[in-house]
Amino acid sequence: MDSNEVRQEWAERSGEYSPEYYAYYGPDETSESIRSILDRFVARDASVLELGCSSGRHLAHLLDHGFENLAGIEVNGDAFDVMEETYPALADQGTFYHAAIEDVVGDFEDGQFDAVYSVETLQHLHPDVEWVFEEIARITDDLLVTVENEGGEDQSHSDDPDVNYVNDDFPLYYRDWSRVFTEFDFVEVDAEVGERDTVRTFRSA
């Protein structure tokens, strides 16, 4: 599966892992973890960007807790219809970009966002677009949070990420996000390994 096919898979996603799926389950423990990290490191008026926001359940949780300068990037256009129905206040107040991350991130200014985070999104980016990681670092002024599946202890440490096909369907690329972002002058200040995902918190050096 090449990078175009990966983008198309998520742009047309329905059923499991679709915008409707995530809206149905709503904010969860991950939403609360992100809010707690942001509360710890940035002010409530911080500009916050979610990479791969889907229908906005994590951003809606932030809005409910006083964060108002919110933005999101999402490749699936259905997500915005679901957001308007499920989280109308977020849809009205936030700034959203209907695009693949790699198609829009280069348009942002250096340090445009005080905080940037991803939840099980960067793990699906094809190796052909790994250049986007440096762009993510470039647009992040202070705080960067990754909540991604990094694979088990048997993951290789080569430059090429290991890949796993979820339900024999779409690819999940295991990467060492500490290694990725510390190469771009970020300092890892916290890491929490969960049953599936690892939550890493970075600050700009």
Score class of each variant (00 low, 15 high):
Glu150Gly: 09
His98Thr: 12
Thr146Pro: 02
Glu148Ala: 01
Phe67Pro: 02
Glu183Cys: 01
Tyr174His: 07
Ser156Gly: 11
Asp92Ile: 00
Pro88Ser: 11
Pro127Val: 10
Thr182Gln: 11
Arg196Ile: 15
Trp10Val: 03
Asn164Ala: 13
Ala205Asn: 06
Asp197Gly: 00
Ser3Cys: 04
Asp190Leu: 04
Leu172His: 06
His126Arg: 06
Glu188Cys: 09
Asp141Val: 02
Gly66Leu: 14
Asp154Lys: 05
Gln123Glu: 10
Val132Pro: 00
Ala205Met: 02
Leu62Ala: 13
Asp39Tyr: 01
Arg200Leu: 11
Glu12Met: 12
Ser36Asp: 13
Leu172Phe: 00
Asn149Tyr: 12
Val163Glu: 08
Asp45Glu: 14
Tyr24Trp: 06
Asp92Leu: 05
Pro161Cys: 10
Ala89Met: 06
Tyr25Asp: 05
Gly26Lys: 08
Gly77Trp: 08
Gly52His: 04
Asp81Thr: 15
Leu49Asn: 05
His126Asn: 08
Val104Trp: 04
Thr86Cys: 08
Ser204Tyr: 07
Ala43Asn: 07
Asp169Thr: 04
Val180Ser: 08
Asp169Gly: 01
Arg179Trp: 06
Ser33Glu: 09
Phe170Asn: 02
Glu32Ala: 12
Tyr174Met: 05
Arg175Tyr: 03
Val116Thr: 09
Asp64Ser: 15
Tyr22Cys: 03
Ala91Pro: 01
Ser31Ile: 01
Ser33Ile: 04
Glu5Met: 10
Asp28Val: 01
His98Gly: 06
Asp45Gln: 14
Asp142Gln: 15
Asn167Arg: 14
Arg57Met: 03
Thr146Tyr: 14
Thr146Cys: 13
Arg35Val: 00
Val119Ala: 00
Asp168Asn: 13
Ala91Trp: 03
Pro88Lys: 12
Asn167Lys: 14
Glu20Val: 08
Gly72Gln: 12
Phe41Pro: 00
Asp81Glu: 15
Asn149Val: 08
Leu144Asn: 14
Glu188Ser: 10
Arg44Val: 03
Ala43Ile: 00
Glu29Thr: 10
Ala115Pro: 04
Ser178Asn: 15
Thr140Trp: 07
Leu51Trp: 05
Asp110Gln: 12
Glu134Met: 04
Val166Ala: 07
Leu143Gln: 13
Leu49Ile: 02
Thr182Ser: 09
Pro171Thr: 07
Glu20Lys: 13
